[in-house]
């Protein structure tokens, strides 16, 4: 599905990625873990098109997308959320989520100017779709008309997931979806992520520091440390790996 081959990426002297290769298998949840600064977000940026790697390839359904712009990758069906929430803060929850459907909707400027007719039909059908598939699904119907700034952090994370879901993505990249959340919120989010995988068959890549969550919901885990890929395998294999234990020495695995 989504594959990286021997990715290298550096910023000046900092080598953020040094030969990362793995495949996120279709319909599964793949975890990407590693200590702070390991290169996890850089990997997502290379996958979603914000950074162009120095060498190596990003493949989607077998096609090389290494040099494709972010918006073109989104149109292919790659969605992502950000480590530090990147919602449109001045807009309501509903408007944020509506934006997710941009590439799937057809309305062009000319029909938009007229609105009545094709554009209106599409808008109302789209509204019904996201109400069902996103807003009901994520249980956020009580906040749909609120501006983002009025929401607590945990709900903002959920809305950002909702915006990505409105894209009906084939692959979903989640960068620390439960960072800063309490136990209950983390449990809710883990459940939503599993629901997305099971109901929509979405391929999911998950960067997370919460080991329990990664071990619970991922079928496959990739471990990065200082840009190197130090391990890959099932959660059980990875947590028994000596290199991983060493990298995490002092932190609970």
């Amino acid at each position: 599905m989504l594959e990286v081959r021997n990715l290298h990426l550096s910023f000046g002297g900092i080598k953020a990625l040094q030969g990362v290769s793995f495949t996120a298998r279709a319909g599964e949840i793949t975890g990407v873990i590693g200590p702070n600064g390991a290169g996890k977000t850089s990997l997502f940026n290379a996958m979603s098109g914000f950074y162009t790697p120095d060498s190596g390839q990003v493949l989607f359904d077998g096609n090389d997308i290494t040099r494709l712009a972010p918006d073109a990758r989104a149109a292919l069906g790659i969605a992502r959320t950000f480590q530090n929430i990147a919602l449109f803060r001045g807009m309501t929850v509903l408007d944020n989520i509506k934006l997710g459907g941009h590439t799937r909707l057809k309305t062009d400027v000319w029909s938009a100017l007229r609105y009545f007719g094709a554009a209106q039909r599409e808008e109302i059908a789209y509204r019904e779709e996201i109400e069902e598939r996103v807003i009901d699904f994520l249980e956020i119907d009580h906040i749909r008309k609120l501006p983002i700034t009025m929401l607590p952090y945990g709900l903002q994370k959920r809305v950002e997931l909702g915006r990505a879901l409105a894209m009906q993505p084939k692959v979903l990249l989640l960068d620390e979806p439960v960072a800063g959340m309490n136990r209950e919120e983390t449990g809710d989010m883990a459940r939503f992520i599993l629901d997305v995988q099971q109901e929509f068959g979405t391929t999911i890549l998950l960067v997370e520091h919460d080991m329990h969550m990664v071990m619970d919901i991922c079928s496959h885990v990739v471990v990065l440390n200082f840009g190197h890929q130090i391990a890959e395998g099932t959660p059980a294999e990875v947590s028994a790996n000596p290199a991983v234990i060493e990298a995490y020495l002092g932190t609970a695995v």
Partner: peptide
Amino acid sequence: GVQNLFRTRVGRAFIAIRERDYSAEVLGI
């Protein structure tokens, strides 16, 4: 006409660019 734009994806894309351009890109705008 201009008001109508903002009832559709076209106008929403403009606002997304104003609010946060890299988020707009990641949504395919």
